[in-house]
Amino acid sequence: MNNMPLAYGLAMILFAVGLYGVVCKKNAVKIIISLLIMENAVNLFILLIGYRKDGIAPVMVKGQEASEFASMAVDPLAQAIVITSIVIGLSIVALMIAIAIRLYDRYKTFDTSKMKDLKG
């Protein structure tokens, strides 16, 4: 407990900033921006967990022993998952922006509290 990781805590604060934006803002574009910040924080947290101190990148160089490489490189699985997550995030943002543009064409505003048909 004496060496509570500061980086983990900061990533979680970033996630909380995004959460506040999603709940409390009423501009549609601001909500999309907050969701992007949350996604950034989660990707960062996954990469932080896979870090090894004084490690090397998981790309082998010619003439390197496999066992020596395996004892030095950082986590490759976390990086692969984060690449997939980033590209999926881009396509989902495109879909969200398309919906926001359609809503703007219909209501002439980005204000979500003025969109009467969306009220439950």
Binding site: V87, L90, S91, A94, I97, A98, I101
Partner: peptide, 13 residues
């Protein structure tokens, strides 16, 4: 796939 897809997103928007 990725190249055509991302450019298609841009052209669409």
């Amino acid at each position: 796939k990725v190249g055509a897809g991302i450019f298609m997103v841009f052209v669409t928007l």
